[in-house]
Amino acid sequence: MTRRREVLVYGAALSALLAGCTDEGDGDSAGTSETDENGEEPAAPEGDESDTDSESDGAEEGDEADGEDAEEESEEEEDEEEEEDNGNTPDDHPAANGIEDQPTLGDPASAPATIVEFSDPGCGICAAFHDGNFQDIESELVEPGDAAVVFRPYPVRDYDASEPGSHALVATHERDEAAFWELKQFYYDNHGSFSSDDIYDRTAEFLNESTGVDGDAVAEEARDEAHQSTLDENLDAGMEAGAGGETPVFYLFREGEFVTEIRGNQNLDVFRTALGL
């Protein structure tokens, strides 16, 4: 079922892309190709029209070709302009919807690559990934500035720690990002030991003892599910991207462009090779 949805999404995306190409083909054929210092395209000077009046019929076809080339160039420049605003931050994939507000290691705008991780705090495979491979990626790719990692709590596995832990992670991130990463590791280091009865108390205790965050307030917000909208955004993004009910799932981007998807506890070599780093 998951694979079929993936095919439908790709087919829809391809159809939309083709439709978009058709619409763009009906747009204006601007004669200019340079942007000014403000990044805006200057209006075509009037002298260009008088120059074309003296050309022969055969040259008209050349003009059309030039117009199409200029149109492509202007489209490329618009893309470049957009990329300059966003840097390398991925923004054209469901997995990247809303990542600007998510816990992030590194800088997606400047790093050549971005890894968006959908992970469940109660998942054993996620815990295994965060017990070695994550640290390798952090030290070998993130710290040198080659990659950024965006973590998206994605409670789809229905373990005792899945939803409460996800709520607590979001509530903690709202207060202090460093504390978020500490809490995330706390959950994975103690995978399998949480129950729905004790996770809130143990979360509060950990935050109070190990971070500067008010653990009791975080636990209360987690119980109240105060940040459900953030989790819903993650769930929607993950489902639309095709992650389905599995975790961990990673979406890799290189210079803002989607590269591929990786599932499971894969090692540094897989990530580094896939990203061409």
């Binding site: 998951t2 109660g122 789809v156 596995r157 229905d158 009910g245 599995e246």
Partner: peptide, 22 residues
């Protein structure tokens, strides 16, 4: 893998979680 995906789509991922060997 398939079961996790299918169960997740129907909101029944808990079924996989209750399996003793996941």
């Amino acid at each position: 893998a398939v079961v996790a995906g299918v169960l997740g789509l129907f909101g029944a991922g808990w079924l996989l979680a209750v399996l003793p060997l996941e």
